[in-house]
């Protein structure tokens, strides 16, 4: 039998240990496309959809700053839109809503987005801006890898052949979050570029993740440092002027490493992340008082 449907994490990890490189499929929104198109010859494959340990999300540690949210790799995009979670991670919910169609959001998972590690993976810039870590597990144990070390290149990750993505571990941050994605259709479109912006009022940090403008999700560190200076940390709102927004946009644009491809051209992508970044920062001004 070539399709395994393990019903516990232990069963899954054992299978993966016995067959290193065993294909893993959750929502199928990436892998099954490759199989359908004859680009991936399926041998043995394990379905993750019936492993309860991979589903859902939970809090770890304190509820506020200092605590973490542990998002199971089986969490679907639709589940990211659940109001309770969306309130904690609004930028993740905003990103999830841009993924494909309702059908795709019902099937596709956080773990799949991480495992595929496409430069256009919609949750990746958000996870970058949230400073998420990826929890990997194997029969030998678990390890936590920062997102920036997990995604090693376009569609390349640090996942070992005997490992499985268990979860993303996200520090709880208080502050405004934004996600903007540019595509040439109003829905169901691969990102031409995307910008995630996360304010961390505790740490007094502005963190910016960029998608589809480089081989991996990019953090715009210089722009982040600049932005931290133009936020009024007593309100958590941008407090600068037009020139600051422009400067912030330029710094974000400078961090991008876009290319020309069939979806867009590099010069547009750079311009678009500039525009989206300044709009994201500007939107913190309209934030409702917490």
């Amino acid at each position: 039998m070539a399709v395994f449907v393990p019903t516990s994490l232990e069963e899954l990890l054992t299978a993966r240990a016995e067959r290193p490189g065993l294909d893993l499929v959750a929502g199928g929104t990436d892998l099954v496309v490759e199989v359908n198109f004859g680009r991936h010859r399926l041998e043995d494959v394990a379905s993750l959809s019936r492993v309860p340990e991979l589903g859902g999300w939970r809090r770890e540690g304190p509820a506020g700053p200092g605590g973490h949210l542990v998002l199971g790799s089986g969490l679907t995009y639709t589940e990211m839109l659940d109001p309770t979670l969306a309130e904690l991670l609004p930028s993740l919910a905003q990103a999830a809503r841009t993924v494909g169609s309702p059908q795709i959001r019902n099937a596709g998972t956080l773990g799949g987005n991480l495992g595929t590690a496409s430069p256009a993976g919609d949750t990746l810039p958000v996870l970058a801006a949230l400073e998420a870590e990826v929890l990997l597990g194997s029969a030998a144990g678990t390890r936590l890898v920062p997102l920036g070390e997990f995604v090693t290149g376009p569609k390349r990750t640090a996942l070992a052949p005997d490992e499985v993505i268990l979860a993303a571990r996200v520090p709880v941050a208080r502050g405004h979050q934004e996600f903007l994605k540019v595509g040439t259709r109003n829905a169901m479109v691969i990102a031409v570029c995307s910008v995630a912006l996360v304010l961390d009022e505790q740490a007094r940090q502005v963190r910016v993740g960029l998608g589809s403008v480089g081989p991996v999700p990019i953090r715009a560190l210089e722009a982040e440092r600049f932005a931290a200076e133009v936020v009024d940390w007593s309100t958590g709102r941008f407090s600068g002027g037009e020139a600051d927004l422009r400067r912030f946009g330029e710094l974000v644009g400078a961090a991008a490493r876009p290319i020309d491809d069939h979806r867009s051209i590099a010069s547009y992508r750079r311009r678009a992340v500039e525009v989206c970044a300044r709009r994201a920062l500007e939107r913190t001004m309209s934030r409702q008082a917490a």
């Binding site: 039998m1 070539a2 399709v3 449907v5 499929v25 929502g27 199928g28 929104t29 099954v32 496309v33 199989v35 359908n36 198109f37 494959v45 379905s47 959809s49 019936r50 639709t78 494909g100 169609s101 309702p102 059908q103 795709i104 019902n106 099937a107 169901m188």
Partner: peptide, 29 residues
């Protein structure tokens, strides 16, 4: 065959999905 058109939409345990992206064997049960 890539989840872009919805023509194959079915309900799987009550969830709307594209049947073209589900490995049939994994839908057992």
């Amino acid at each position: 065959e890539q989840g872009e058109c919805g023509s194959c939409s079915v309900l799987l345990d009550g969830r709307l999905v594209c049947a073209c992206l589900v490995l049939a064997a994994s839908a057992a049960g």
